[in-house]
Amino acid sequence: MANLKPKAKPIAAAKPHKDKPPKDKRTLAPYKLTLLITVVPRNKAEFYLDLLQSFEVNLQMSVSAHGTANKLSGLLASEDDRQVLFSIIRQDNVKAALTTLENKFATIREGKGVAFTVPLSSTVGVAVYRFLSNRQE
């Protein structure tokens, strides 16, 4: 049902961060993390997983689901099949990711979906944080 998607690329391959460095050097976690939830048709899930990996997303979870369209609407059961993608993404990548997703939702045939972000308040473990944020420093 649920499968963990391993990281897209090694942390060492991360590009230099373009944003201004954090002012407070004492901050252990200068980059905010966000949970990005994307609901897409099941047969397009792999495409969207790969797409999101290009935004330095190292951890994704894909869960099978189905929509709640009215049974009388004439949809086939297979058209109701959905995949929910949970991705941990750095806050500074959210805008680009959502813009790209919005574009793909509008242009890919039968690839419509919805995506939204939920702010994360905390995590635990420096190594975990570096993995999730794809930052070594």
Binding site: A29, L98, F105, K112, A115, P119, L120, S122, Y129
Partner: peptide
């Protein structure tokens, strides 16, 4: 949010600094 029929793209009010994911 993106992809919501009634929403287009929505931006909520700015977050507090406490929303930092921090070890």
């Amino acid at each position: 949010v993106v992809g919501l029929r009634t929403a287009g793209k929505q931006k909520a009010l700015p977050q507090a600094d406490g929303d930092n994911a921090s070890p």
